[in-house]
Each structure stands twice: as structure tokens, then as C-alpha cells.
């Protein structure tokens, strides 16, 4: 069992539905994006085009963040998901420096709510209060809480209107078939063996 994701860049339309779904599901604080879509312009007129690249933690098999974490706060589960135990994190930020994918966010202790001009948190924010600790690092958990409760899916892949994000067990024949279609990984030079693959446009 090795959970991961195949992202078909030919299908991604850059709508950021995955970004919003992740924020809704995990209630990440303002400024924290576990799942995001970077958009760049490629080519030149008249063949210029917009390239959208959805990103998330790559849940690497050879995760440098796990190796460099001084307190074992970052660890890898049996199913390949890389997690952060915020109670153990000392906030040294070495994992952020080590990660080649900019997948981690440090909580600087700023106001976490989206509408600070309103008095207090909204009910949704109140329900998730305490989930994020100031001075620690957070990142995509590949919806491990859902998986643990028996729902093997991620919010981002479920919300994707074009099925560009395909989540599953990378050892399964279906995922292997997708990977064989010419999928590549980000920064292969880092030898991190990511669990997130990209199918080219």
C-alpha cells in the first residue's frame, strides 16, 4: 500500500477547485495552502499558453524532511503518507529549507481567520480552533484522517471537475497504468522518489 497521486496536466484547467476544497476540508489558516495551483505563461505569441501546475506535498519515499527533522515530528506512515506531529515540532524550519517542493508552511502566529474585521472567528473557524499551533510547521496530510475513517479519497481529487487529480494506491494496476503513460516527477535530481506524478500536457 503506497498512497499517491497522478496529476494530468493536460486536463487541469487551473480553476483552483482543489485549492478551495482543501481549505474547506482542512480549515487551513489564512495564508496556508497545502494544495495550490501555480500558473505560468509558457511559449511565445502566437503560441503562448497558460500552464497550470497543481502542487501538494509529494509524500516522497525518500523524504528529506523526515531525515532532517530533529525531533521525529515529521514521520512517514506505513501507507507512505508523510505527517507532521505538531506537538513534537520545535519550529526550527529545517524541513522547509530541505523540501525541494515548497510544500511546507510555517505558522508565524499571525491572525489565522479570514475575516479579522469581524468580531471573533466564524463558526467554521471556531470548530477548527486549536488545529494549528503557532511556531510549528504544517503540510498536506493527503487526507489521512479520511483514509483512517475508511473513505479512501482526498478532497482535492474529489473536487477536481476534470479529473486531473487522480488519487490512489500507487501499487495498484490502475495507477501503474497511468504512470506508464509517460508520467514524470518534480525535481528527480533530488532523488526524493515523490509519490506525486505528473502526466505532461
Amino acid at each position: 500500500m503506497h498512497y499517491g497521486m497522478v496529476i494530468d496536466l493536460g486536463r487541469c484547467i487551473g480553476c483552483n477547485a482543489c485549492t478551495v476544497a482543501c481549505k474547506q476540508k482542512n480549515a487551513t489558516p489564512r495564508g496556508t495552502f497545502w494544495c495550490k495551483v501555480t500558473t505560468t505563461e509558457e511559449g511565445e505569441y502566437p503560441k503562448a499558453y497558460r500552464k497550470s501546475v497543481p502542487t501538494l506535498c509529494n509524500h516522497c519515499q525518500n523524504a528529506v524532511c523526515v531525515a532532517v527533522c530533529p525531533t521525529h515530528a515529521t514521520y512517514k506512515r506505513e501507507d507512505g503518507i508523510v505527517m507532521v506531529d505538531q506537538d513534537k515540532c520545535i519550529g526550527c524550519r529545517y524541513c522547509i529549507a530541505a523540501c525541494p517542493y515548497e510544500a511546507r508552511t510555517f505558522d508565524f502566529g499571525e491572525d489565522k481567520t479570514y475575516f479579522p474585521e469581524l468580531e471573533g472567528d466564524n463558526p467554521y473557524e471556531s470548530a477548527h480552533e486549536g488545529a494549528f499551533h503557532a511556531g510549528t510547521v504544517s503540510k498536506c496530510i493527503l487526507c489521512s484522517d479520511r483514509i483512517d475513517s475508511g473513505d479512501v479519497s482526498t478532497a482535492c481529487s474529489q473536487a477536481c471537475p476534470t479529473h486531473a487529480r487522480i488519487f490512489g494506491d500507487l501499487d495498484s494496476p490502475e495507477m501503474q497504468e497511468l504512470i506508464r503513460r509517460g508520467a514524470y516527477v518534480m525535481r528527480p535530481d533530488q532523488r526524493t522518489q515523490p509519490a506525486v506524478y505528473y502526466l505532461p500536457r
Binding site: 527533522c69 530533529p70 525531533t71 521525529h72 515530528a73 506537538d87 513534537k88 515540532c89 520545535i90 519550529g91 526550527c92 524550519r93 510555517f106 505558522d107 508565524f108 499551533h133 503557532a134 511556531g135 510549528t136
Partner: peptide, 16 residues
């Protein structure tokens, strides 16, 4: 410079 110095003891006990 640590973000969470309260958890500093983890650095001493972890021995990673």
C-alpha cells in the same frame, strides 16, 4: 530563533 521553544526538550530526547 525557534518557533516553538516549549518543545525544545524533544530535541534533546529524540536523538535523530
Amino acid at each position: 530563533d525557534l518557533g516553538n521553544p516549549g518543545a525544545f526538550i524533544n530535541l534533546i530526547t529524540s536523538l535523530n
